[in-house]
């Protein structure tokens, strides 16, 4: 040990950092792939960007995009409300309610959404008339199903009923994640079950429920394209209509993807704020 070494031991450490050659190799590989992609986007005529720009804000496309948006919102709002109800049924002390919720989830989660939407589109064949009356008894009012029912309603109902099955499981997981001591503390203060659920349990469960619900909403945005099964006019259906007479298949599909990306980006921003709101009070 030299004298100089002893003197510098108390000073700030200036060590030679570990080299990471693997990182450099990976970075170069990614950079080359990115350059190839950009080059393709610019030089490949098949994208036909001017054609895309021509249709991006065309009335038919805007209307279809609007349909996609409201279908997504309606399906998520309905799905969350029905999902909470189903989750509470699954956690109920009443075995009949538990069983009914289980059966519902089993059916709607275990069959394809596309098939379900086909059935909703043909529901008039299953229930030709709808009536209001006594079960197994006389009906007071009846009407033709197809007269009451539109493609929009079929599309929305189909998405809501399917989404509720998934939301029910997400909500149940969230409620069960809340510490049992919270229920006890609320009970000891004299809160009723409903008050405890509304003010204590659900707000805490929301912290766990919000991230997967954001995922569900983004999935829903894309799943609306399946309502072509009903059939109901939304974004994907509309661009298909357009390219069936312009033959510009790829440009129209890429344009639809740009719309979907824009909308899902908006939803990600919303999800960020939602998660921040329900994360209040937890380690930051």
């Amino acid at each position: 040990m030299s004298v100089g070494e002893t003197e510098t031991r108390t000073g700030t450490i200036k060590a030679v950092p570990v080299r990471h050659p693997g990182r450099w190799v990976a970075a170069v590989a990614v950079a080359v792939l990115a350059a190839m992609l950009v080059n393709n986007l610019v030089t490949n005529e098949a994208y036909n960007w001017p054609e895309q720009l021509k249709y991006l804000f065309a009335p038919a496309v805007l209307e279809a995009t609007f349909n996609t948006i409201w279908l997504t919102v309606a399906a998520m709002v309905g799905g969350v409300i029905l999902g909470i109800l189903l989750a509470l049924m699954r956690l109920s002390a009443n075995p009949l309610l538990r069983g009914a919720a289980w059966l519902y989830i089993w059916v709607f989660r275990g069959t394809p959404l596309f098939t379900q939407l086909l059935i909703w589109g043909n529901i008039g064949a299953l229930f030709p008339t709808l009536g209001l009356g006594i079960p197994f008894g006389p009906q007071f009012v009846t009407a033709q199903t197809n007269a009451l029912y539109s493609a929009a309603a079929a599309a929305a109902l189909g998405l809501v009923f399917n989404e509720a099955a998934y939301m029910a499981e997400i909500v149940r997981g969230g409620i069960q994640s809340v510490d049992a001591g919270q229920q006890e503390a609320a009970s000891a203060l004299g809160l009723t079950r409903v008050q405890t659920l509304r003010r204590i349990i659900l707000p805490q469960a929301m912290r766990v429920i919000a991230p997967p619900t954001g995922n569900e909403a983004i999935s829903m945005l894309k799943n609306t394209s399946l309502v072509v099964a009903v059939p109901f006019v939304e974004l994907t259906f509309t661009v298909q209509n357009i390219y069936s007479h312009t033959y510009q298949i790829i440009p129209m599909l890429v344009m639809a993807c740009l719309w979907y990306l824009f909308l899902s980006s908006l939803m990600m921003i919303g999800q960020h704020y939602l998660e921040r709101h329900y994360g209040k009070g937890y380690a930051r």
Binding site: D179, G181, Q182, E184, A185, A186, I200, P203, Q204, R207, Y278, K280, G281, Y282
Partner: peptide, 8 residues
């Protein structure tokens, strides 16, 4: 374990 409401 206190059982305070953590979101308040």
């Amino acid at each position: 374990r206190f059982n305070l409401f953590p979101h308040m």
